[in-house]
Structures are given as structure tokens and as C-alpha cells.
Design a protein around this nucleic acid. Structure first.
Lengths: 145, 145
DNA sequence: CTCGCCCATTCACATCAGTTGGTGAACTCG
DNA sequence: CGAGTTCACCAACTGATGTGAATGGGCGAG
């Protein structure tokens, strides 16, 4: 039985990339080839062994420069290695962004800035009550994670 | 004279983020606060000292997990630290978003979403009145351009 | 002024990211 | 069949990343 690889891990992503981006002749890139290619294309040194460790999941948590190099080689944005883990957070971000496109909401937020904690709390309560009055559902809290 | 910081470096970006995303009372986050906050919000441990080193540019090349944590704290996608173009684009939004960075304010904004125009107006008026009560100046209108 | 606190900065050190130098299995070509 | 290559895989080590504990400056309270 092949070793389990949890989805969304760096290991899984690298594995996928190796499978998908291949040299002209059909077979997967070899660890040495990738290492060599990265080095010659001006990237940082990266050992074939280390590539193997990353793909196997023995090492996760590479540094910024190595992530850049890997992303560069496989032709994906560096975000590719983060997205899944950060998907939720980015979603939250998008929710925020869409909220502030609503002009009146934005205006309120801008003006609420700098108010005392007490006042903010009062206003927050009031918004909730009005929300209830208008029959809107509980909004997704922005806390968590 | 302040030390030169080359544009586009991690140092520069962090520096910018510190300047832009601030706690409720106007001053910048302290290194301890950031470290503490990241830790309590389930992130990896990160020392105040290390944050300082990164900001100062004495260390670049943090690991994946630390990048995730930093991005998470400042509310930017991890790509912010990689792609310069992306960083600029996000910066533009960030300025506006800075109002929402203040957790309570953000909460209000999220909950105000979807309310009727009438309710929004009422709340807006209320905010203005409280603002006046607390002796805050007229906020910069977010109108136009 | 002086005590206490908070904060940036410094430095000595520990931990873990990343490398070096292997072993053997599989595959090629005499 | 061997001798030579090439590859995944392993393990012991090196050094950069990241930490903790100490230093010193700034600032408000008493």
C-alpha cells in the first residue's frame, strides 16, 4: 500500500506537480534534473535529496527562497503552495473586500474608526438588533482560525 | 538618517505593513504584540526578536510556516511577500482596508452588510453623533476620485 | 530626580532546514 | 553474465534560521 499523503499538504502538491509537468519525453523529471535546472537558472542551490524529502513529506516548511525556486521551476505562482492552507483566510479577506464595496457600509466603517471600545460595542449591538429586525441571518463571524 | 531599505524586499514590505495595519489606538503594533497575537491565534511560535530582525532586514528567508503566520496576522495573502506586482495591488486596497483592520470596526462593517439603506443611514447618523460626543474630528470623507 | 515599565536592540545559543556522502536496487551495454 | 550508470533512498553532519535572556534608552508616576 502506498504511503498515505494527506491532501493539501506541500508533499501532495509537489507530487502533483511532478506528475503534471514533465520533460519532452514522457517521464517525470528526476530529482537531480530539477535541482540542476534550478541551479543553472540562477536559483539558489537545492539538493536532489532535499527535493526528495519534500516530495516524500519528510520535510515540509522550506524557506522563502526555496519556495520561490520551486514555484519558478514548475511555473506556478508561489501562492500555489499556500493557497489550500490559506484558502479560508483568503475567503474571509474577500468577504471583507466585498463588504467595503458597499459605499454606505464603507462610510460607516471609516467613521467608526477611532471611537472608544465602549461606543463600538454599543453600535455593534445596535447593528445586530437592526439586523434581526430586518430578518437577516447570523453573519459569518470573522473570528476563528 | 534611516538605514536604506531597498524597495521590494521582505524588509520593506513588512515595514509597510507595520505602518499601515495598526491597533485601535493609533500607534504601531509592538513586536511583542504581534508575536503574542500570532501565537494565541494558533500560529507557530515566533519571537519578537525575530520579527525585529525580519523587519530590519537582518534576516530574510523565513520558512513557509512563518510566512503563513505573518500573512495571516496582517491580513494579506502570502503571495504579498513574493510577488511585487501583487503586493502593489494589495497595497492599494490595504489603505482602504486599514479601517477594517481594527477588529471591532470590522465586525460592525461585516454585520452592517445587507441592511436596508434606511437602517444604514440611521446607523451612520448615530456613529456621527457618538463621534461628536467623543470629540473626534470630522473624518476624511471617503468620497470620490 | 528615581523608580518602574515598556520597548527596541544585542548577543550567545539551540534547533531544525538543507547538504554531503554514502548504500543498494534496477537498468544498460560490453 | 559482470562492470558501469542512474536512480530513489538513507543517515550523519553543518550552518542558517529562529530563540531566550540580558541591556539600555525613553517616558510617565510618584
Amino acid at each position: 500500500m502506498p504511503e498515505e499523503i494527506a491532501a493539501g499538504t506541500l508533499s501532495a502538491k509537489l507530487n502533483h506537480l511532478f506528475g503534471v509537468v514533465r520533460p519532452a519525453d514522457g517521464d517525470e523529471y528526476t530529482f537531480d534534473e530539477v535541482a540542476e535546472s534550478i541551479r543553472t537558472q540562477g536559483g539558489p542551490t537545492i539538493s536532489a535529496t532535499y527535493l526528495w524529502q519534500l516530495r516524500k513529506g519528510l520535510r515540509d516548511n522550506p524557506t522563502k527562497r526555496h519556495l520561490e525556486a520551486l514555484a519558478g521551476f514548475f511555473g506556478v505562482p508561489p501562492a500555489y503552495f499556500f493557497d489550500d492552507a490559506e484558502a479560508e483566510r483568503i475567503d474571509a479577506e474577500l468577504t471583507l473586500l466585498s463588504a467595503f464595496r458597499d459605499a454606505p457600509v464603507r462610510q460607516i466603517a471609516l467613521r467608526a474608526r477611532g471611537l472608544s471600545a465602549k461606543s463600538l460595542e454599543a453600535i455593534s449591538d445596535m447593528v445586530d438588533r437592526v439586523r434581526e429586525l430586518e430578518g437577516l441571518p447570523e453573519p459569518a463571524s470573522d473570528a476563528e482560525r
